[in-house]
Design a binder for these strands. Structure first.
Lengths: 142, 142
DNA sequence: TACATAAAAGATAAAAATGTCTTTTTATCC
DNA sequence: GGATAAAAAGACATTTTTATCTTTTATGTA
């Protein structure tokens, strides 16, 4: 369903939100240890999320990644869109260029409904809430 | 959502079912013209579907692809499984190796629900019915 | 200022997905 | 049996995704 990049991106963002804040940042090595993701590849993904203002980063001593309060309110849909674009939420299920309401593909209607639910689910999950569940031990990242 | 292989596979199967039967088979060139798909790549996909008994093929003069009655009853879920396996219907949404009910990933519950609906939708769509809708002009493949 | 640290950026590389071309096999017709 | 047509199979090429390694830039601290 999601690309590896999105999987790592979401897992990393939730881990960072659960462990870091303005005054205490976490480094890429620690992040990748806790989410079982490849270090350099994940670093690139976090660069993207940082550029898109979904997470924050700081270079130098005591630097690392963290999320501020407004970033913790962002949904995982925003992560997916930042990394892979909105194709998952908009394109035709069978890849037709000219699929539309009047000339629909064979799975148009039902696929649209599923996509709506997927979008809803992704929009309803904000990073901060997932991070809290992680700290409580209700969910895991590996 | 689906791979290109699955998109082409589903489109091709529906087209074949709509135009061919035991006594009148359609060739790969005609198929690809009508679904706007790359010829040789699609040919490979159809080989797979044929081996998996989802479509039928015949070599030689007047040969080509077709579906028998039992094959027309197969669902598009079977096409996806034949081509890409069942990862889309079973794996963890965030790619965790050890995601489970007791140790779930942060989107486990909702993702499971979406996957259930997707599975249901795919199981409910049989190739023959979609082919009929195509013949009636209610749906398109390009 | 010099040094240490950590992310950012750039260069490569490996693997997988997608796409194309050629040859082989098989079935049918004459 | 020979010619022909069409899928099957194999080889190769391209693109995208995933992954790794190295160099650069920014930042805090002594």
């Amino acid at each position: 369903m999601f690309s590896k990049s999105c999987e790592y991106g979401i897992r990393a963002a939730v881990y960072i939100a659960s462990e870091a804040h303005e005054g205490h940042k976490v480094g890429i090595a620690e992040i990748c240890r806790h989410i079982e993701a490849p270090r350099h590849f994940t670093a690139k993904i976090l660069q993207t999320l940082s550029r898109r203002n979904i997470i924050s980063s700081q270079k130098g001593i005591n630097g690392g990644f963290y999320l501020d309060d407004s970033q913790k309110k962002k949904s995982i849909k925003e992560i997916v869109e930042a990394i892979d674009g909105n194709g998952l939420f908009t394109g035709c299920g069978l890849g037709l260029k000219r699929c539309s309401e009047t000339k629909p593909c064979p799975i148009h209607k039902q696929f649209k409904e599923i996509r709506r639910k997927l979008t809803e689910m992704m929009e309803g999950k904000d990073i901060g809430t997932l991070a809290i569940q992680l700290k409580k031990g209700r969910v895991v990242l590996m």
